[in-house]
Amino acid sequence: MSGSSLDGQVVVVTGAARGVGAALAGELAARGARLALVGLEPDELKNVAEALGRDAAHWTADVTDRVRMAAVAEEVVAHFGRVDVVVANAGVAMGGPFLDSDPDAFDRVIQVNLLGSIATARAFLPALIASRGYLLQIASLAALTPSPMMAAYCASKSGVEAFAHSLRAEVGYLGVKVGVGYLSWTDTDMVRGADEDEALREMRAKLPGPAGRTYPLGPAVERIAAGIVRRSPHVYAQWWLRGMQPVRGLLPSVIGGALGQREMRRAQPALARRAGVRRGLVGSGGAADETARSSDHHTQSQ
């Protein structure tokens, strides 16, 4: 591929009902791609697909369900005839002290962000091998630097980064390229949901330099789409994230040492005001995930 075109390319985007996934689907469609949208929210997915026109279709799936994802992959290939690009974007988040977190919600972040990405790759890699295609794994600033009160999210995003790097070596000789996409705090339901927590909001405001800002969604997805066109091994939604790579090895000692401990002490008054409140998934996407799981549990128990 060259230039800015994805003409005729079939691109699968998970987590496409809202946020980065929905906006990225629109940007990719504008570059000529045909879109297979995958997510948990059928009504939202339908709205996104209809806005994109006849070259978009949608499938409802929980990315952690390997059987369902395998079926979706078969259906996408049957519908479009091929798959050229897969963007493993589906994700959920939670924040707050580890011991105050709801254990099920904490585990769910790992399941969706890490195991869901693995299930996505497992389902679609045969099609990508056939097309000599490209898998973009969406990671985060959280993969580059640890952060207190974000243990689940940091663990999951570090995990998917390592998974993608390992997979790149395995499938490169088959003609499949694998990239990792990095985003800082971007204006989505997830980030707005996290900012509703006073302690998290105040701690983020104290992050140095560009790390504490919230960035607009549009330019971020434009940079990601440009990386997909290039089939880049690393895609940075905000320009300064590239500069984090050379210093990332130093950050665990800095953040886990005096700096992180000082900020946790400062956060104690805000944390005390939420003492005893179990922390679950944040944002509208997190609420949709919890609703879908509750519905599944109710159906299975009948």
Rank of each mutant, 00 (worst) to 15 (best):
L207M: 08
A220D: 09
V247F: 00
R278Y: 02
P208M: 12
A272Y: 03
G227A: 11
A93E: 08
G181P: 02
M244C: 15
L207I: 00
A17E: 12
G175D: 10
A211P: 00
L183N: 09
R68A: 14
L135M: 09
L207H: 13
A142Q: 10
A151N: 12
E50A: 13
A287H: 09
S147A: 15
A267Q: 06
G179Y: 03
L174E: 15
E75S: 15
S131D: 07
A57S: 12
A164G: 01
G257W: 00
K157T: 10
A270C: 11
R108N: 02
A127F: 03
E41I: 04
V191S: 06
K177E: 15
R293C: 04
Q261G: 07
L200S: 01
G21W: 05
R31E: 03
V235H: 00
G19Y: 00
A164Y: 07
E41T: 06
E161M: 14
P216M: 14
A123L: 01
Q302M: 14
L115V: 07
G283W: 01
E202I: 11
P216L: 13
L37K: 05
I224Y: 03
P42S: 11
A194C: 08
I255F: 14
D187W: 14
A71Q: 14
V247Q: 02
P103L: 10
N47S: 15
V254S: 11
R108V: 10
G179N: 09
S301D: 08
F80D: 00
V48D: 10
P233F: 01
A237I: 05
E222I: 08
M244Y: 12
D7G: 14
A151V: 15
A270S: 13
R132L: 04
L115H: 06
G3N: 15
R265V: 14
P103A: 06
L271R: 15
A33E: 05
A226Y: 03
A22Y: 05
A143Y: 01
G15C: 01
L271S: 03
G116F: 06
G257P: 12
E196H: 09
Y134V: 04
D289K: 06
D100R: 11
P208Q: 07
R242P: 00
A237S: 11
G116Y: 00
A139M: 12
G21M: 11
V12R: 05
A121W: 06
R274V: 15
F124A: 05
A142E: 07
R132I: 13
Q261T: 12
M1L: 11
L37T: 10
T186Q: 09
L128T: 11
V87W: 00
G283R: 01
W240T: 08
G133H: 00
S140P: 02
S184I: 12
G116C: 07
S140I: 08
